[in-house]
Design a protein around this nucleic acid. Sequence first.
DNA 1: CCTGCTACCTGATGGC
DNA 2: TGCCATCAGGTAGCAG
Length: 269
Amino acid sequence: MPELPEVEAVARTLRPLVCGHRIRRCRVLHTIAVRPQSAATVRRRFEGRRVENVERFGKYLTLRLDDGCAVLHFKLDGQLVWFDEHRVNGHIDIALHFRHGTLGFVDRRHFGRVLWFRAAEEVPGIRGLGPDPLSRDFTLDYLRSLLTKSRRPVKLLLMDQTRIAGLGNIYASESLWRARIGPRRLSHRVRPEEARRLHKAIVDVLSRALECCLDPAPDFRDPGWWFQGLERILGVYDLEGKPCRRCGTRIRRIQQAGRSSYYCPTCQR
DNA sequence: CCTGCTACCTGATGGC
DNA sequence: TGCCATCAGGTAGCAG
């Protein structure tokens, strides 16, 4: 559940479910999910702790505890499931048992992590995050200064979490399509009026995606839940060979830093 | 500091 | 059917 809108929707849905509740037991069913920490440490730190708040930092999700902090990252495929009872089924990596049910962290691919830190700010990946694009800190001036200072392709800059927190492969491609800027354009070659379009495109696409992710909201009780209807707002992602909605040209896919970038060769320059 | 590349894992899919 | 290659929404770590 990779990018900002999806993690934000999960945070908002999870908050009322676990805030104020105590983790009575923690089971580490796949120790790789807590690496490089130890299962014993994570269990000991989590058990008996009360969840004070659920927050999002970029694509990280945190459960602030009355002592310390549970830090979750879903990477590519991680997700949450909820059981109303203490019994769980299916592939579960980490189970957090509450009085009223059990929260499961699921990631068959084992890229995702559930870790304990004293505070969210102590997580290197969180400390290094750039401004959140849905916050006031993400101004047009900030984006322009970022672009001016970088010589990398703009798509890679958008995905750099230390510059902007939360954009990933889908919404980086989508933002550039909306702004009509080619993914390979060098950042410092983006002109001021294009930067303005890009700023609006980023905010708009993330806002629309978040609305989409909240309606319907994630249903952790359904083991097969996933976000519905996001295709409706996508213009290029995973649409190689399909006609561009603006000009009809076939969408192209290229590789950048090992990841697929999708774009319209006619309206993105 | 900046940038680019690889490893980390598992499962789904498509060509032969 | 089997086998192989390729692909997947991310990030840490290391080298130049």
